[in-house]
């Protein structure tokens, strides 16, 4: 309870909580489609690119978001193009881009100042990093993601389940892929400061996988995934504050615990699943 009341006393905690909840909600919704389409590593690739961009911004003194957002959006389109053109396989393309960006980021930082605490925060998450403009950005992002998700829910289902059929009924699948990549890029950049560049992709991957342990329908997966994601984030941030552990890492461990719980529950319920 003391941890909870602290969230109302310290504005930086309240900011981290608001940004975290909204980002985790968006990531979970986008994640359902990404995970089912086998694109979940795009999140990982983009976060590493985001780290590279932030390092560059730190070194040059430019505004971090102003650098990171466009760079990550471009990377998202590039990754999608690469994996669709088929010249380099999608997972390999992501490996190339993400390790290069990470390496670039680390080199820039080590040339600039040497590894310091700030970098630790960028890599593994910090609840201290949120500014008021981050809060505004995350509110805007979540309004956009939620609106689009509700508007295009049925089309999204069709594309995720069976792209060939969806395209045959006249749905513009490429446009949807672009949209999902764009929104994922934004979610990752905004969430990266709380969760850390190394760990933000867990917000995309864990909740849908957890929900899939127990849900039979797509709607069920979407709803449970969103709820699980937000609950785990709140739990993780409270733990982070109470035990003074890195925010992103705490959220990931809470997610892992819930995943295991659901996996066991799924096993136990499995006769009813058939």
């Amino acid at each position: 309870m003391t941890a909870l009341s602290a969230f109302f006393q310290y504005p930086f905690l309240a900011r981290a909580m608001v940004v975290g909840i909204l980002v985790s909600l968006c990531a979970a919704l986008l994640g359902v489609s990404l995970v089912l389409k086998r694109y979940s590593m795009i999140g990982d690739g983009l976060s590493h690119v985001g780290f590279g961009a932030l390092a560059f911004a730190l070194a040059t003194g430019w505004a971090p978001m102003a650098v990171a957002i466009p760079v990550v959006i471009i990377a998202a389109f590039l990754l999608l193009r690469l994996s669709e053109s088929g010249k380099i396989r999608g997972d390999a393309a992501i490996g190339l881009i993400s390790s290069s960006a990470l390496a670039g980021g680390v080199i820039i930082i080590s040339l600039d100042s040497g590894m310091n605490a700030d970098v630790n925060g960028y890599l593994f998450g910090s609840i201290l990093a949120m500014s008021n403009s981050d809060v505004i950005l995350s509110v805007l992002l979540s309004i956009i993601v939620l609106t689009l998700f509700l508007l295009f829910y049925r089309q999204l289902f069709a594309i995720t389940f069976d792209e060939a059929f969806a395209r045959a009924t006249g749905i513009q699948a490429e446009a949807f892929h672009m949209l999902i990549a764009l929104l994922t890029a934004l979610t990752i950049v905004i969430g990266m400061r709380v969760m850390g560049a190394m760990l933000i992709s867990s917000l995309v991957i864990f909740p849908p996988l957890t929900a899939m342990r127990v849900c039979r329908s797509f709607k069920g997966v979407v709803v449970v995934s969103a709820v699980v994601s937000v609950v785990c984030l709140i739990g993780g941030l409270i733990a982070s504050f109470s035990f003074d552990t890195p925010a992103g890492a705490s959220v990931v461990l809470v997610n892992l615990a819930v995943f295991l719980l659901f996996a066991f529950a799924g096993r136990w319920l499995s006769p009813n699943m058939e």
Partner: peptide, 22 residues
């Protein structure tokens, strides 16, 4: 059928009605 569909969490009803999307 695609690989994606094999472990896809969707109810029969959800799949069938998605045919109305044209």
């Amino acid at each position: 059928q695609t690989v994606v569909q094999r472990d896809f969490p969707a109810s029969v009803q959800e799949v069938v009605i998605s045919g109305c999307l044209h």
